[in-house]
Every structure is written in structure tokens, then in C-alpha cells.
């Protein structure tokens, strides 16, 4: 019985409920006019509403709104689409959850007005069932938002990883790895991998690792630099570390870091000059008069 009541209201009151759902959102500032048009918002709401009605209709027979049932597949799909669309435009997780929950009260009002008072038990049961369903749907939306966000974060991390460790071919047989920001273990690993494979790809004999943009050098970072230089040497190349600021030089000495046989130069410019000398490359710059 309770599910049939819900279905009747969803079916008969479609127009007014849609309007009410939309206006609740407007009142609560959930329709973000800055992010999407009213027409778009309306069509999204209709799509969700119809998928919901379909699920409720399929549940009449069992008279139970089981959030785990298959009849909500359409609703889940619609939610996924709307969520993706909205998170992409910057709607927050909270706003999405509130958007789903906002359907409850207009529906309850109509349930109260339609269902006979003497049938108090049915009314309570209907409200219970519907609340449970909408809460589950809202939770599902939240999960969708979070997973959508996680995907974005993962993608950005990957992009940053690549951005942060480019390998540049400076000259024939000379490559440079300008490091920027902080160098944690994972990035250091990535840098080493990129650097070593670039030696093969670019047929490089000299690798200049420029740390001008590195914020701090602690023992770990220093270790990573030394290891990278050692690996470069094993492959038959030579590493030059450039861009050691006076402050970093002090820290490294205080940390007792032994840079051993590694060539270090104060600037990328000095390192490049040094590389030319090693490769016996004469560079002549002619200025047109």
C-alpha cells in the first residue's frame, strides 16, 4: 500500500512536484544560475524524477522501496550523469546531496494531504520508506561526487608528475632536468626513471640536473641526487648538478652530505659551459652587425 500511494503522487503531481523540487532548490540557493541555465537544471530534474518514478512503479508489487534493488538502475545512471556534469562545473558534494534530499518535503506535504488520516500507519510507513530510499540515493550521490573528485585528483597528480620532471635536450648529447618544488621519494624515483631513459632516447652523454627551483634539500633529497648521478654514471653518462644556492650549499655541508665525485656547478649556465668543454664542442655566437 505505502509504495502505491507514493507512486500515485509521483504520477499525478509530476508537474507540481517538479516545480516544488526546483523551487526548494532555488530557495536554498541550490540552483546555481552561475553554473548552468534554468532550462538545463529543469531537464536534469525531469530526467531524475522520471527515473525515480519508474523505480517506484516497479516496486509497487513488493510494496517495499529497497535501495539495493535493480529497478533503480536507471536512476543510478541518471544520477551518475547529472553528478558528473555538475561536479565538472564546480558544484560541491554537499550541494549535490542537498539537491537530492530536497525532493522529500514537497512529496511528504502531498502525501499528508492525500492519504487518509485514519490510515496514519500507512502514511508513516510511506514516509519511512521514501526517506530511506532518498537517503540512500543521496549517499550514493555523495559517493559519486567523491569518486569523481578522486579521479580528478589522480589525473592532476599524474599531470603534475609529468610537468614537474621534464627532460630537455639542450644540445647534441646534452640533456637537462630542471627540478622545481619539493622532491619526495616518489617524484625522485620518477625523475630518475625519466632521466635514465632520456639518456638512451637522446643519446646523451651529459645530464645536467638543475636544482635552482628546489625549495629545500634535506638528507633524503641529497641522497636521491647522488643516486641519480651514480646511475647516470653506470650507464656511461656524466651528471652535473647545477643551481646549488649558497643556502643549500650550507645545508648540505651541515647535513654532512658527501657529494663525492659528483660534479657540481653554481648555475645552469656554468654547467652548460662545462658540458661543452667536456664534449669538446666549440660554440661560436655571431652577432649580426
Amino acid at each position: 500500500m505505502p509504495v502505491r500511494h507514493i507512486h500515485v503522487i509521483l504520477d499525478n503531481e509530476r508537474a507540481s512536484l517538479l516545480r516544488a523540487w526546483g523551487s526548494t532548490q532555488a530557495e536554498e540557493g541550490l540552483i546555481r544560475k552561475d553554473l548552468f541555465s534554468e532550462r538545463e537544471a529543469r531537464s536534469q530534474i525531469e530526467m531524475l524524477y522520471d527515473a525515480l518514478t519508474k523505480g517506484v512503479s516497479a516496486s509497487i508489487e513488493s510494496d517495499a522501496l529497497d535501495p539495493e534493488a535493480d529497478c533503480w538502475d536507471d536512476l543510478r545512471a541518471a544520477l551518475a550523469e547529472v553528478t558528473r556534469e555538475r561536479t565538472k562545473r564546480g558544484v560541491s558534494t554537499g550541494e549535490m546531496a542537498a539537491f537530492v534530499l530536497a525532493l522529500k518535503y514537497p512529496l511528504f506535504e502531498r502525501l499528508g494531504a492525500t492519504v487518509d488520516d485514519t490510515n496514519g500507519g500507512v502514511l508513516i510507513e510511506a514516509i519511512n520508506q521514501f526517506t530511506r530510499l532518498i537517503d540512500a540515493v543521496s549517499l550514493y550521490t555523495t559517493e559519486l561526487c567523491i569518486s569523481e573528485r578522486d579521479k580528478t585528483i589522480k589525473r592532476q597528480q599524474d599531470e603534475m608528475m609529468e610537468l614537474a620532471s621534464p627532460v630537455v635536450e639542450l644540445w647534441d648529447r646534452i640533456i637537462a632536468v630542471p627540478l622545481v618544488g619539493t622532491l619526495d621519494s616518489m617524484r625522485a624515483q620518477e625523475v630518475m626513471e625519466n632521466t635514465l631513459s632520456a639518456i638512451v632516447d637522446k643519446k646523451a652523454d651529459i645530464v645536467i640536473i638543475d636544482i635552482t627551483g628546489v625549495v629545500t634539500v634535506d638528507t633524503q633529497v641529497a641522497q636521491h641526487l647522488i643516486r641519480t648521478a651514480a646511475a647516470v654514471r653506470l650507464m656511461g653518462g656524466e651528471a652535473i648538478i647545477s643551481g646549488i644556492s649558497p643556502r643549500i650549499a650550507q645545508t648540505m655541508v651541515q647535513l654532512g652530505v658527501d657529494t663525492g665525485e659528483i660534479r657540481t656547478r653554481s648555475s645552469l649556465r656554468m654547467a652548460l659551459a662545462d658540458a661543452f668543454r667536456t664534449l669538446e664542442t666549440d660554440v661560436v655566437i655571431r652577432t649580426a652587425k
Partner: peptide, 22 residues
Amino acid sequence: RPAVAMTLVELGMTLPSVKTAR
């Protein structure tokens, strides 16, 4: 190979007495 160089360095074997070429 690059992967071999990385692994050896991590094993602490930098072969300081061996000369290398590309």
C-alpha cells in the same frame, strides 16, 4: 640498461672502480 642502473644503485652497488661508457 636504465632499469638495471637504478636497481644496482639502490642495492648500493655503484661500481666506483669500474669505468663506464654509453
